[in-house]
Design a protein around this nucleic acid. Structure first.
Lengths: 122, 122
DNA sequence: TTATCATATGAATAGATGTTCATATGAAAG
DNA sequence: CTTTCATATGAACATCTATTCATATGATAA
């Protein structure tokens, strides 16, 4: 009895197998999408970036404001803003020497909100 | 004119300051909560864990199933399941030699869903 | 008890990541 | 054009993290 698709060697008597496996596999997005999803959450997985995003909830802020507000070096803020921008979570607008940043995606609110709900239920 | 709370050194003419800063600070959760939130997202920020969670969307699975299903070593799966369990995202149930894992929190769906929405809009 | 299997765990290793330091860029003012 | 300021960027470094390997645990069956 050949195994197509998945090779199960030992645990093929008690555990669910081929049909279940196929069912689950069919319902999953492809690897690339799952990878991108993980990459997105990775961006939220840093307290500096979370703080920056939260700060921008209220209104647009310049780099210097964020730096002072959060007590984080300007360089660090700049590096993290770049990551946030690359991931389309914030956008920037230049006004002379000053660059103002603001949120670029409504999902930021909902993603952080969902995370908070989980946190608050512990 | 003294600055209480925040010390602004240079960028205190064009950028918004004390009142805005206070306003934003007041609206932010405390550091510990923001740290916990980042820690939670860090858990979602790994494709192996994302895959495991997705696999469990359908039904409970044993370690061996997950391992075969995703093509990841049993050891790696076990390590990641521990992290997921520590963060109350999955729960386990033992049946003889076999340990079945399933989702432990409805927020898993909503968090991943929110993330997916962002991904799909690029 | 002994053998086998499913799972868990600790140590080691390689790769990723965040901050700092030094410096560059870009814009306004003198 | 030179200076000053706000921001950006690259390199270096320290820390964290995910996987692998070896092995332990816990359970069933012979």
């Amino acid at each position: 009895m050949p195994n197509d698709n998945i090779d199960v060697e030992k645990c093929d008597f008690l555990c669910v197998h081929k049909d279940t496996v196929r069912e689950v596999l069919d319902s999953m997005p492809d690897d690339e999408k799952l990878y991108d999803l993980a990459e997105l959450f990775k961006v939220f997985g840093d307290s500096t970036r979370i703080k920056i995003l939260y700060a921008l909830f209220e209104k647009e802020l310049c780099v210097c404001d964020i730096s002072n507000l959060l007590g984080i070096s300007q360089t660090a803020v700049s590096h993290q803003l770049k990551i946030l921008k690359t991931n389309n979570l914030v956008k920037s607008r230049r006004n002379g020497k000053i660059v103002f940043y603001s949120l670029d995606d409504d999902h930021v609110y909902s993603i952080i909100g969902c995370g908070m709900e989980h946190i608050n239920e512990l």
